[in-house]
């Protein structure tokens, strides 16, 4: 099977004055379509950096990233933006909703960027799918944390991307709400056949994924879910 996402020899170094911190060291990873992968690691281990590189938001110093057989390093910024809007959905820990836009407007944004017809109609359907059909015109400040994350999930999935990158999506929520949110993400991804790459430090969540990789000292070590 042709991998959906392939990282080859990814290296990333941050410079702090004269000090160099090598966050990612020669990372290799292949993810198949529909697969659910957990990236485990301690805080500051480089999980979020790796996720940013996968999303094309950050560039590695060395190595290549291929998504859908498209090398992200060789395409222009505008092409990368278009590619990201179609193929990659991101769910952040802090939700990152536009606070001056309603839930419906927030969810519509990816479709509007793709110039899809009737974005509002599809956004309503997406919000309905995450159980927020009664919160369409609410602003983020009028929603609970769990509801904000549901809006963020709807926004990430509305353009039906092949990959969902989730950066500790339950990290800001209480246990019960977090479990509900993660259950929602898992089920939506499974139902739609989307690939999920979940960054977390929660081992229980990682066990629910097909595969777990551990990022430690900049090195990615692959383990089975049971071992993790």
């Amino acid at each position: 099977m042709q991998p959906l996402l392939q990282l080859k020899k990814i290296t990333k170094t941050f410079h702090q004055g004269e000090q160099c911190v090598e966050v990612l060291k020669n990372i290799n990873l292949s993810v198949n379509p529909g697969e659910q992968i957990a990236i485990l690691g301690q805080s500051g281990s480089g999980k979020s950096t790796l996720l940013s590189i996968m999303a094309g938001l950050d560039h590695p110093d060395l190595g290549t990233i291929e998504v859908n057989q498209e090398n992200l390093a060789t395409i222009s910024q505008n092409e990368l933006s278009r590619f990201r809007s179609k193929h990659i959905g991101i769910v952040f820990q802090q939700y990152h909703l536009m606070r001056h836009l309603t839930a419906l407007e927030n969810v519509s944004i990816p479709l509007e960027l793709q110039r899809t017809v009737e974005p509002s109609k599809k956004a309503k359907e997406a919000l309905n799918a995450v159980g927020l059909s009664n919160r369409l015109d609410h602003f983020p400040s009028q929603l609970s944390g769990g509801e904000c994350q549901r809006v963020a999930i709807a926004r990430a999935m509305i353009s039906e991307p092949s990959i969902i990158l989730a950066d500790e999506p339950s990290g800001n929520l209480d246990q019960k709400t977090g479990e509900e949110i993660m259950g929602l993400i898992f089920s939506l991804c499974r139902d739609r056949g989307q690939t999920l790459i979940l960054v977390t430090h929660n081992h229980d969540l990682a066990k629910k994924c097909d595969r777990t990789v551990i990022l430690s000292d900049g090195i990615l070590v692959e383990k089975s879910a049971q071992e993790a």
Binding site: N78, S81, R84
Partner: peptide, 16 residues
């Protein structure tokens, strides 16, 4: 700045 970063992550070009 945060909103600009979010727009970029959603697939907006820097220009937009």
């Amino acid at each position: 700045t945060g909103d600009i970063a979010v727009l970029l992550s959603l697939g907006a070009s820097k220009k937009i």
